[in-house]
Simulated assay, not measured.
Amino acid sequence: MHCTRISLSLRHSRNATVYMYRIVNLPVKIELVKLHKREHKSEPFLRVNKFGQVPALCVERQKGQVKFVLSESSAILKYLSEKYPSIVSESKMYSDDLREKAKIWSALDWYQTTIRSSAAGVSWHAFVAGNMGGKVSLELAKHYEERLKMSLDVLETLRLGDTFPFLNEREHPSIADLLVIEDIVNLVVLKGSPFREELSSLDQLLAERPRVRKWRDAVMRINKPLWDEIHGVLEMVAENASKKIDSESRRRRFDDVASMSRL
């Protein structure tokens, strides 16, 4: 029996595994884990994955025991691609050729220390931390934003080309495209950040990098209805947070005007 626990709450990189699973119709079972309810730290989940992390891949559960657990989206995507080579290779998201595989691995490894660390840092310190019981920080968000811009510049000039829109100038998307794009599009949460005026928005970042924008659009078009379904929750959370900020701003202006009128 194969089971996969994947969070669909505010967790970076979670959607790449879901997107791949739904696109190529892999024979795995999806179980949703709600981070905002701390289900990933609950005793039942920790019995499955002692790291308390999502996504987590659970393989060959027999007599209530889990024989193999794998965390980290990059490792899970590679494992599933190797486990079901005929299914994934047919979609052209992976390859039987070692050199082609190595190029995909290279993109995934590069992402971990560049896009992943910087974009996740911006999102966390500008928005997510405040929704997970922590504190947001403009100073830290700005620090990671500078690193993010440098990483996006490398993506624009070296990792993407003009012949084909996908990473490594592939004609077809790979599992690397699905994963690398996630931390970038998750920056939509910045519209709901209290620092939204001080930080570059996702639209601004993409407008300055046409290849990255073209690549983002190409990954979205792989299955646009599915993309919208998976990412709709994040959009809704960001929009609601933005409306709340606007409402509080209007209330403060009203209070200021009322205070001035009493002087």
Rank of each mutant, 00 (worst) to 15 (best):
I6Q: 08
I6N: 08
S7K: 01
S7Y: 08
L10A: 13
S13P: 09
A16E: 01
A16T: 04
T17R: 01
V18F: 15
Y19T: 05
K29R: 09
E31F: 11
V33D: 08
L35N: 09
L35A: 10
L35Y: 11
R38N: 13
H40V: 02
F45H: 12
V48T: 08
V48L: 12
F51H: 13
Q53D: 11
V54Q: 07
V54P: 04
P55C: 09
V59C: 08
E60D: 15
E60P: 12
G64A: 14
G64W: 06
V66I: 15
K67S: 09
L70W: 06
L70V: 06
S71L: 09
I76K: 00
I76S: 00
L77Y: 02
Y79W: 01
Y79L: 01
Y79M: 02
S81W: 02
E82A: 02
I87K: 03
I87P: 03
I87V: 02
I87H: 04
V88T: 04
M93C: 05
D97C: 10
E100P: 09
K101E: 13
K101W: 11
K101S: 10
A102E: 14
K103V: 15
I104R: 12
W105Y: 13
L108V: 07
W110F: 09
T113W: 08
T114Q: 11
T114W: 03
G121F: 07
G121Q: 06
V122P: 01
W124T: 05
H125V: 07
H125T: 00
A126P: 02
F127C: 00
F127K: 02
F127P: 03
F127R: 00
G133A: 07
K135V: 01
S137R: 06
E139N: 03
E139R: 03
L140M: 07
L140P: 01
L140W: 01
A141H: 00
Y144Q: 10
E146W: 14
L148N: 01
D153T: 11
V154G: 08
V154K: 07
L158V: 05
L160K: 03
D162M: 05
T163Q: 12
F164G: 09
F164C: 15
R170D: 02
E171P: 06
E171H: 13
D177L: 14
D177P: 07
L179G: 09
L179V: 05
I181Y: 08
E182C: 02
D183Y: 11
I184V: 04
I184Q: 10
V185I: 08
L187E: 00
V188H: 02
L190I: 06
L190G: 00
K191D: 06
S193T: 13
S193Q: 10
E197Q: 13
L199K: 03
S201R: 02
Q204M: 09
A207F: 13
R209S: 07
R209C: 03
R209T: 07
R211K: 02
K214Q: 05
K214Y: 01
D217K: 06
M220G: 15
R221K: 14
I222P: 03
I230L: 10
H231T: 14
H231D: 12
H231Q: 12
G232N: 09
V233P: 14
E235M: 14
A238D: 00
A241I: 10
A241C: 04
K243Y: 05
K243S: 13
K244M: 14
I245H: 02
R252T: 08
D255Q: 08
D255W: 00
D256M: 08
V257H: 12
V257E: 10
A258S: 09
A258I: 04
S259W: 13
S259E: 13
M260F: 12
R262M: 04
